[in-house]
Every structure is written in structure tokens, then in C-alpha cells.
Amino acid sequence: MTIKKKILLIDDDKDFLFATKLILEKGGYEVFMAEDGKTGVEVWKSIAPDLAIIDMMMETWGEGFSVLNKIRATDTGKETPLFMLSAVDLQGPYNSFEPPPEFPKVNKVLHKPIKADDLLRMIAQELSGK
């Protein structure tokens, strides 16, 4: 039996979590969910996932960024692929998130809603590239 790869989803929208979880499970992954940044970092530490998808605009502005920083600061989080989710708003339509150079590495920036095919393809690429 092959061990399923683990993916952690961090987003404060329950429905978005659930919908994305369904897609990822269909793609053969084991999915963990966290509804806020703090829980997200805790789950990260306890399960050491193979990849995490983090929403940029949770409750408070920038919570996504601080989660990203905290995860990158853990032992298991240095090289693990991390995707950021952006909903392209608040800053105007064209200022989607571009990480500044000194920013912890973000492997992909995804825009909501994400097409199931695209999501699974990008995750597969990222995980096989390791």
C-alpha cells in the first residue's frame, strides 16, 4: 500500500476548505485543514505535511504572511512546497500578490477559485520535482 502524501489547507472559509479538500482527496491526497493561522502552524508541526496551501487574506490582513513565516521557520518547513492563495482584491485588480525578494519562498501563488485540474497538476509537479 502506498502512503498518501499529506496536504495541509489553511483558510478561514470553511466552505472553501471543504470544496478544496474534496478535490484533493479525489486526487489521492490525505488532507488536513485549519481554519486559522495559529491552528495551521500547530497542525503543521504535528503532522509535517508534504505541502501546504495558505490563504493570504484570513481574518486579519497579513495573517497568511505570518503563517508562512512561522512555517518556513520550522525544521520541516524549510524546503516543503508552500502555495499561497490570493483572491485578488483590496489592492485593485492587478496588484495580485507578488512576493518581495526577501520574502520566504512561495512555490506558487494561486487565485481563487482554482480549477481542479490545475490544482492537482501543480501539486503533482511540485511533489514529483522533489
Binding site: 472553501f16 474534496l22 483572491a87 482584491d89 481542479a116
Partner: peptide, 19 residues
């Protein structure tokens, strides 16, 4: 925030449903 989020989620559910 409040109007776009539900719409985004509905489309994500449709993606999930199809998947």
C-alpha cells in the same frame, strides 16, 4: 470580501463536484 467570497466558494464547489 463579503460578496465575492461566497461566489468564489460556489465556483470552487462546482469544481469539486465535477472532479
Amino acid at each position: 470580501h463579503e460578496m465575492r467570497s461566497p461566489l468564489v466558494v460556489i465556483r470552487q464547489y462546482i469544481e469539486a463536484l465535477n472532479e
